[in-house]
């Protein structure tokens, strides 16, 4: 996205305004302009955050959240890609599955959290199913559009060379639609994370989402903000990793 590269192009300047906001926030806290009970100073939050990291207390909830998310995300990516390619290449499968997909897709996924809690019980399986439900549709639709948007010459060439169907899928269709598949997976990354955090908040067992809401309810505001920092760092790190992987896998992306 062009404005992202623009933000990067500004270099160090892009750090100026966030740094300024943090300084004003810190100063306002020290001067007593803000209510310290509701809004701790940034340095206080960082102190608690560093405490969480150095004591290792951050590890168990972090692993809980990341574990549930990753399992669901991988399943959703594989399933979405497979279904997307299947529906884009086979008219029969398209006719069979399109109405189902289009009727499940508009369901606001957060609404399914209490439904699945009741039906599957509160547990790991439920969380994973929720992540899959949230992440699968963007991957599926993006893959579908990617495959349908392929240059027909590509497919006809494969047919002329009498390449088998499975080889066409794995050596022609899959690599050619990879940018679109990854675009869908990037969207799914954010959606899946939102769902896992929400589910943890409502389930109240473990994980980053649970910590944030639990500290808010017991008015441990510094701890709450520290856990939000953990979450933001996690989200940012995953996005960064994804971008690196994307650049590796599709080095031609954005150059065409």
């Amino acid at each position: 996205m062009s404005h992202r590269s623009e933000a990067r192009g500004m270099g160090l300047w892009s750090l100026a305004s966030p740094a300024l906001v943090l300084c004003v926030w810190e100063l306002a806290g020290r001067l007593g302009w803000t209510n310290p009970i509701l809004l701790p100073r940034p340095l206080q939050i960082i102190e608690v955050f560093l405490g969480l990291v150095s004591s290792g207390a951050v590890l168990s909830p972090l692993l809980h959240t990341v574990g549930l998310f990753m399992i669901g995300y991988v399943i959703a990516s594989l399933l979405g890609t497979a279904l997307g390619i299947a529906m884009a290449t086979s008219q029969t499968l398209y006719g069979l599955l399109e109405p189902l997909v289009e009727s499940l897709r508009p369901i606001p996924k957060p609404a399914l959290v209490p439904v699945l809690f009741l039906f599957l019980g509160i547990g790991k399986a439920t969380m994973i199913v929720l992540v899959v439900l949230a992440s699968v549709f963007p991957v599926l639709i993006s893959t579908f559009q990617g495959v349908r948007g392929l240059d027909p010459v590509l497919l006809e060439t494969a047919r002329t060379l009498q390449i088998s169907r499975s080889r066409t899928i794995f050596s022609v269709i899959l690599p050619a639609s990879l940018p679109m598949i990854l675009a869908g997976m990037r969207v799914a990354l954010g959606l899946g994370l939102v769902l896992v955090i929400l589910a943890e908040m409502l389930a109240g067992e473990d994980g980053i989402g649970f910590r944030i809401l639990d500290h808010e309810r017991s008015f441990q505001v510094r701890e709450m903000f520290a856990w939000i920092v953990v979450l933001v760092a996690l989200g940012g790190a995953m996005m960064k990793l994804f971008e690196i992987a994307e650049r590796r896998l599709v080095p031609w992306r954005g150059r065409s």
Binding site: W13, V194, L198, E216, G235
Partner: peptide, 27 residues
């Protein structure tokens, strides 16, 4: 304005919505 505000927007943007709710409840 772009230099000043865009970085701030980019910081808030990736925050998962559920995470923003608890601190906002306080305010």
């Amino acid at each position: 304005l772009r230099c000043g505000l865009l970085p701030l927007i980019e910081i808030v943007r990736p925050m998962p919505t559920p995470a923003i709710i608890p601190p906002l409840i306080l305010f």
